[in-house]
Amino acid sequence: MLRFTLRRILQIIPTVVVVALLIFVIFSVVPGTFAASLFADGKRAADPQMIARLNEEFGLNKPLMERFVTYVTDLAQFDLGTSFRTRQPVIDLIHDRMWASLKLAIAAMVFALVIGVPLGFLAAMRPGSVLDTVTMIGAVSGLSMPQFWLGLLMMYLFALQLNWLPSFGYGNGSFQNLILPAITLGVTPLALLARTTRAGVLDVLNADFIRTAHSKGMSEIKVVRWHVARNALVLIVTTVGLQFGSLIGQAVVIEKLFAWPGIGSLLVDSVAIRDIPVVQGTILVIVLWFLVINTAVDLIYAAIDPRIKQE
């Protein structure tokens, strides 16, 4: 198990290297520069002298290969560069925003797990029942609802009409400020979890070893606790892992909507003004987040299913 864990963790490194290179290549071929977008106010052409000065300052006039070498050597020392706009180290900018993002993602996932998994489980235990039908209709609606629209509705109802919760902002990290964005963000993973849990449990219930369990004279509750739960967990863990990773991406919209100071809104703002070091750094962090989650999922698999360790 230790060797398996170490191997899976070490596998992150080459992936990060390849992704970092890809990010550099992509951002050196996109059109538009920071300097040009900074001075372009739409009224007159930017002053070529100012542009030249800025390019000089950020080293953007150097040849591509040279910039590449700088980028790689900085990265090797965990230096993600300096923001064009704020002139702060990118790593500090990301550090400030990351905890807000993590908090939002975890809250959304907990919400989805606590409600989605039990609903899916119960629906699978009694297929065709009222609960099953209602859950599945709810899940389809949850999946097809645009998140920003749901967010607006929630704001309108709970902040504007009922005045129960603040409509936006971080509120210095208060729990009340977290509720609305977390629920909005959590609806999609909740719906997906309810559906996959139901499908997974139904699958396990039809397995031969469940018939064996019944033939031993077990009550339904014991069959579920001893034999269904662990087997259904494999599919649930997969879904949670995939959703957790993509939550950061989905959070871009929600963070903008609720003025949540997360990594998603940092990314959007930086793209708009071509603050390339911040964009590069943010994407790299998001990729790393994905990789960490994937590795965690693989390790959990191995802990659940003894067949995986053997490969």
Binding site: D208, T212, A213, P306
Partner: peptide
């Protein structure tokens, strides 16, 4: 299971893999 027990055809799938 106690007074009447059963053995099934498929030994590959009749046991819980986990």
């Amino acid at each position: 299971g106690n007074r009447i027990a059963m053995i099934f055809q498929e030994p590959m799938t009749a046991l819980n893999p986990l």
